[in-house]
């Protein structure tokens, strides 16, 4: 039945275009737009309220929680951007996220390369070990991890965040990169060896440039994961000297200024901006990466 009508609609383009309108509903475009508007409103509404709340005084917020800024108060944002540690925390988060991303992409791709292209005994075993890592969330290992990092003297420093974050991001990276590297044509490798390149040379000259799309995908996911991380910094970044990352900074600000609603709103919104900007720049990559990881 279905096949029958499919061929029919192929034969009759006019009918097909009429179908199109019927399929997409006669007046249902309004339903679509209505649903879209509600979804957008529910998503953006709270964020916009937060941003606007940062432009109000605590008095304004108390007098009329749902009102608009009147007059506009720049003080909250200005104070955070000029006085506190906001920039320092942002820089800390950036350092940790960039180092984590670099480590994940480099070591993950390196590990995936022999697993994809060498034939050797124990290859599947190693791959299964990495795959099983997907089942080990950082949450489960957090206390022994803390003790281990404490013994290494890494508690309260960057390394205590960066190295475990790389380790926990490796499984998904290896799983995404392996089929990607396996898809590179064999002829390429053979030609490179003919030209006298070693395997290592082939990896740096050919694999790294060709695997860029996959590396960007895993890199973007690793960056987001590190930027938003909360539990590991919460446990590791203790002590006076410890650097503070942005998510910790936001909660600290909230803890120290519990009554300053307008200030907390401004701080929280400012802390959201880098992630939103990164998302706007990398939207395609993030969505592809996630749906890729899901379908794989």
């Amino acid at each position: 039945m279905a096949t029958d009508t499919t061929t029919q609609s192929y034969r009759q383009p006019t009918k097909q275009s009429r179908t199109r309108t019927r399929l997409q509903g006669d007046s249902s475009i309004y339903v679509t737009i209505f649903v879209a508007l509600i979804a957008v409103g529910l998503t953006l509404g709270p964020i916009i309220y937060l941003a606007l709340g940062g432009f109000r005084s605590n008095g304004q917020l108390a007098a009329d929680p749902t009102g608009l800024p009147d007059p506009w108060v720049w003080q909250n944002y200005w104070n955070i951007l000029t006085q506190g540690n906001f920039w320092e925390y942002t820089l800390n988060s950036l350092i940790v996220a960039v180092a984590t991303t670099a480590g994940v992409v480099l070591f993950g791709t390196m590990a995936a390369y022999p697993l994809a292209r060498y034939a050797f005994k124990g290859r599947e075993g190693i791959f299964i070990i990495f795959t099983a890592g997907l089942m080990f969330p950082l949450t489960v290992a957090i206390f022994p991890l803390f003790l281990l990092l404490n013994d290494l003297g890494w508690v309260g420093g960057y390394w205590g965040l960066i190295v475990p974050q790389i380790a926990f991001a490796l499984p998904v990276t290896v799983i995404i990169m392996r089929p990607f590297l396996a898809a590179l044509p064999d002829e390429l490798e053979e030609a490179a060896f003919m030209d006298g390149l070693t395997r290592v040379g082939f990896f740096y000259r050919m694999v790294l440039p060709l695997a860029k799309p996959g590396m960007v995908t895993v890199g973007v996911l690793a960056f987001l994961g590190s930027w938003n991380a909360y539990l590991l910094p919460l446990v590791i970044l203790t002590g006076r000297e410890a650097p503070t990352t942005l998510p910790l900074g936001v909660t600290q600000f909230q803890g120290q200024n519990a009554a300053d609603f307008a200030g907390i709103m401004a701080y929280t919104f400012l802390a959201m901006i880098p992630a939103l900007v990164f998302f706007l720049m990398m939207e395609r990559r993030i969505v592809d990466g996630l749906s890729g990881a899901v379908k794989g």
Partner: peptide, 24 residues
Amino acid sequence: EIAIFVGPALLMFLAFVVFPMVMA
């Protein structure tokens, strides 16, 4: 070569993921 490529990742994974799990 295999050791150079897989080694760092495998060591990090064993030390910071598997070992803490076993200790837990």
